[in-house]
Design a protein around this nucleic acid. Sequence first.
DNA 1: GTGAACGTGCTA
DNA 2: TAGCACGTTCAC
Length: 296
Amino acid sequence: MSTAVDIAGPSSPDQAHSSAKIPNEPLRPSLKRSNHPYSLSHYISTPSPAVDVKGLIQPSPAQEQRPTQPSKPRRAPSWPDMWESPSGLHLAHAAELLMRAGLLALTPATTEQASLGAQSSQPAKKEAAEAKGGKGDGEGGGSGPEEDEEDSSGCSTDFQPFLGAWFPFSPALFPLAGFQMGGGHWRSTAVGAEGIEGLVAEGYSPSSLGGGGGGRRKRKRCGECVPCRRQTNCEQCSSCRNRKRGHQICKYRKCEELKRKPGGPGFDSRVSGFDLRGSDFTLGLAQERSNGALDG
DNA sequence: GTGAACGTGCTA
DNA sequence: TAGCACGTTCAC
């Protein structure tokens, strides 16, 4: 028997006014369509802060066979995904143009190829083509976890020292394209729960990622956290009272994800670990979940 | 075009 | 630090 539980607690204005029901579906249809790559249960079930990054890069058979929700296709973040950058900067296209110009060789033998590039660009192009598509063939059409390792030993680490020297893209673009600086190395945020795909899934359009939107981007509600599942506004909180001028959603419906600032500890934890998922929020959710309050 | 709501700067 | 106000983004 799973009955609606007032997640706001006894002190919730909701309880005073209306029985707050937690719908299993978000209020807005758009949230229902959300492509959020990981469900709430994913975070809850993530066992420890010491997430095996390699496991994320190379999903275990169990992970690969993990039943996916039909409406939420989940693909492992892959290099091809990153080449199809949501930032609007089509890296693959740009790289190809540069390679044609002999400026860029994205292969493990980068330096050698670069020196040869001026003489014969064909090998470089072939290598690049393999880097883009060929490797993906072995991993079921493009989502190649192996590519990360391949790239980490060759491509990315090779061009990384040249970033400041000749790499044609401003390093500032890397965060936009799904990279971030960590430990002195550019790495892909795709190893986190939400990398590039997370950005895409959260509705970051190319323009909103800085491609022309002025840099201000708008995150979406996860649609899965408890506040998101609330259907009713409390009508008593400051947000509700000041809705006309405040333009803010009810405090009790404010998405837990959106409460965390981008780049803040909670946000970043998805990349470096899931430490904050062990916070009271998660514990509370886990408890509610164990109670069956969030079934569905 | 409109409404909902996120992001951010300002203020107490 | 929280609340407020407003600009802006985004879905419909």
